[in-house]
Design a protein around this nucleic acid. Structure first.
Lengths: 207, 207, 207, 207
DNA sequence: GATGAATGAGGATTCATTCAT
DNA sequence: AATGAATGAATCCTCATTCAT
C-alpha cells in the first residue's frame, strides 16, 4: 500500500512549505517526516529548489484546470452569469479547501522563497489573471457585461479580490474559529458573488 | 547631515526585506548597504528578528493612522459615502506609493519570515480589518448601509479586496508597465470604489 | 560481441581517472558511461579503491614488460648502446601513445588519489627505476659505461628524465598542437637519446 | 607574535594539500590545524578552491623569480655556461628544499584538484618552460650553444628533466632515506648539470 | 558609538556503498 | 549477473551573533 516515494516527498514538502515557509523548511525536516533517508531526497530531486518548482508547476496546472472550467461559452442572461460565477467561486473555494497546503504556499508563503520560487509563484498568479481576463472578455462579447474598455483592469481587480478572499477565508484568522466547511462555503460564495457583481450596496432584494 | 544610524539601518533593512524577503536578507547585506560595520548593527538591535519586528510595528502605526482618517463620524448620504471611501482608497494607495517597501513587506513578503515575524504581520492585517469593520458598523448605524447582519464577513471581504488590490496594483506585474502615479491612482481609485460599491455590473451610468 | 563487463568497467574507469582524476571521478560516472547500473559495479569490485588498484597493478605489469625488453644482455659498443636505448625509448613512447590513459593516470594523475592509490603508483615508478638501475649496472659491467659509482643516482636521474619527457610529450600542451604520431616519435626519440647520452652540448656532429 | 591569520591559513593549507592532496584535505582539517574556527576560513577565502588558486598564484611568482635569476645576459664561454647552469639548478633545488610543500603541490599533487586548480598548476609549469626557452635562445644568440633549430623542443626536454629531477630528488623515495641537505645538493647539482650538458656518456674526465 | 575579525551551530548537497528484487 | 532505489556519513559553505579593541 506504500505510495510512490516521490509523491510522498512532494506531499510532505508541500505541507511543510505551507506550514513553516520555504526557507524555514529544511530538507532534513522533509525526509524525517517522510520517513526516508536524507540521500533519498536527492535521488528524486536535484535540490530543494527543484522540489519547490515542481510543486508550483503541478499546482498551477491543477488550479488552472479549475479556473478554466468556469470559461463562459454560451450566451446567457445575467442570472446565468451569476450562476456560473457562483459555481466557479464555489469550485475555487472547494479546491482550496481540499488543496489547502497548495493554496497557502501559492497565495501566502510563496514569496518567502528564493527568486526562482517567487517568480514561479508570480507566474501562476498571472496565469489565473489571464484566464479571468479571457472570461470577462467573453462575457462582454456575449453582451453579458458592458464593455467598459478596461478588461485588464477589471481582471486584475477581480483576481485581487478572489485571491484576497481565498487567502483570508481559507487560511486567515477567521479560519481558526469554527468553520463548517460545506455550509459555510455556500454562504460565503453567496456573499462573495453578491459583492462581485453588486458591490457593497448591491441589489437590495438579494439574499 | 548624516541621518541617525538607527534610522538608516531600519530603512535599509526594510528595503532589503521588501526586495529579497526576510530570510534571504543577511545582516551582512544590511550593514554593507548601510555602510557600517557588522558589529554596529548589534549596537542598535539585539537581533535580526528585532529589527524586523520594529519595522512592522512602526509600519502598523503609520498604516492605521491612514486607515483611521477614513473613520465615518457623521450622517451622510450615499454620495458622501462614496466620496469618503474614495478618499480612503486614495489615501491608502498614495500611502502605499510612498511607502512601497513597507507595503511590499507587510502585504507580500511578510509571510516569508519566521513565526514571530509572520504573526506580527498578521496582527497588522487584522488591525486594519478591525478598523474596516468599525467603519462598516458605523455606516450601518448611520443608515448609510443596509444591515445584512454579517459585518465581520463584509469587513473581511472588504479587507481582502483592498489588500489584494494594493498588492497587485502597487507592486504587481502591471506596475512594471508605464504607470503615471497620481493620474493613475485617480483612475484606479475610481474603478475600485465603483467595484467596491456596485460590483462588476455596477450602476450603469457611472464613468 | 559485447565485451566482458568487468573489462568495460576497468577501461571506462581508467579513462575517467585519467581525464578527471581519481577523486573527481564518481562511481556513478563510471557506471553511467559504461551503461550499467550502479549495483553492477559492486558485483565486480568491492570498492572504488579496488578498481583503482587493479588498474594500476595491470598497468604496472604491462609497463614493466616494455621496460624489460630493453634489458642489456650482451657485450656491445657505444653504437649498440645508443641503438638499444633508442629502441627502448621508442617502445616507451609508442606504449604511452597507445596507452595514453594509463600513462596519464600513472604519471600525472595518480598522486590525486588516496594514500593506497598513491603508494601503488609510487611503487610502479620505483619498479621502473629499479629496472633502469639494473640496465645501467649491466652496461657498466659490460664496460659500455664508465663506473662512476653512483648507479642509483644515475638511474634516478634517468627515470626522472624519461618520466618527465613522457609526461610532457604525450600529454602536455605541445600535444594539443598538431602531432603526427609516428614520425614525431622518431624525431623526438632521436633528440631524447641524443640528450640522454650527450646532453645539451652533445657530440657536435650528430643529426 | 601571532602571525597574520590569512598567512597562517595559506601555510597550513599548503602543507595539507602537499601532504594529503587537494581533494583529501578538508576545510575542517585546515582550520583545525590552524587553530581557528570553521567560519574564520570563510572570512578570508570564499571557498576551498580560492585558497588553492591563491597558493598556486603566489608560488608561481616566487618560483619564476628564482628561474629568472638564471637568465643569461652576457657572452661567456662554455665554462661560464656550466657555472650559471649549476647556479640555477642549485637555486632551484635550494628553493625547493625550503619550499618543499609548494613544490610538492605544484609538481606532484596539483593534478589531484579540480579543473581550475589543475589548469593553474599547468600554467605555472608552462611559465617555467617559457623561461627556459628564453634562456636557451639567449645562449644560442650568444653562440654558447649550437642552433639546432628546436629551441621549443629543447626547452621542453630541459623542463621535463629538471622537474622530473626535482620531484624525485626532493620528494621521492630517495628522500625518505638519509639526505644531508647542503652537501647533497652540491653533489646532486654537479651530477645533474653534468648530465644536462654531457649526458650519460659525458665528458670523460669530469668528477 | 563603532569596528571587523572570529565564532560555530546548522543546512544543503555529495557520493560510496548496500540490498531487496 | 544485474538492477536501481535507498542509505547516511561526510563535507562545503552560510550567517546570525559575539567580543576585544
Amino acid at each position: 500500500m506504500k505510495q510512490n516515494t516521490k509523491e510522498l516527498l512532494l506531499e510532505v514538502a508541500l505541507e511543510l512549505f505551507a506550514t513553516k515557509g520555504y526557507h524555514a523548511t529544511k530538507v532534513s525536516d522533509i525526509v524525517k517526516q517522510a520517513g526516508v533517508a536524507q540521500g533519498t531526497f536527492y535521488w528524486y530531486f536535484t535540490s530543494k529548489e527543484e522540489i519547490g518548482l515542481e510543486i508550483i508547476e503541478k499546482g498551477k496546472k491543477k488550479l488552472l484546470k479549475v479556473v478554466r472550467k468556469g470559461y463562459r461559452k454560451e450566451v446567457g442572461n445575467v442570472s446565468d452569469m451569476l450562476q456560473s460565477s457562483k459555481r466557479l467561486m464555489q469550485n475555487l473555494l472547494l479546491f482550496g479547501d481540499s488543496n489547502r497546503n497548495l493554496m497557502i504556499f501559492l497565495l501566502l508563503k510563496g514569496q518567502g522563497g528564493e527568486e526562482k520560487i517567487r517568480n514561479a509563484v508570480s507566474e501562476t498568479i498571472i496565469s489565473i489573471e489571464t484566464e479571468f481576463a479571457k472570461n470577462i472578455q467573453r462575457a462582454i462579447e456575449l453582451n453579458m457585461l458592458e464593455d467598459r474598455d478596461c478588461v485588464e483592469l477589471q481582471a486584475q481587480i477581480l483576481t485581487s479580490f478572489i485571491i484576497g478572499i481565498m487567502s483570508r477565508w481559507l487560511f486567515g484568522p477567521m479560519n481558526q474559529v469554527d468553520f463548517k466547511p460545506t455550509t459555510s462555503i455556500n454562504e460565503v460564495t453567496e456573499e462573495i458573488v453578491r459583492y462581485e457583481f453588486f458591490g457593497l450596496i448591491g441589489s437590495g432584494g438579494k439574499k
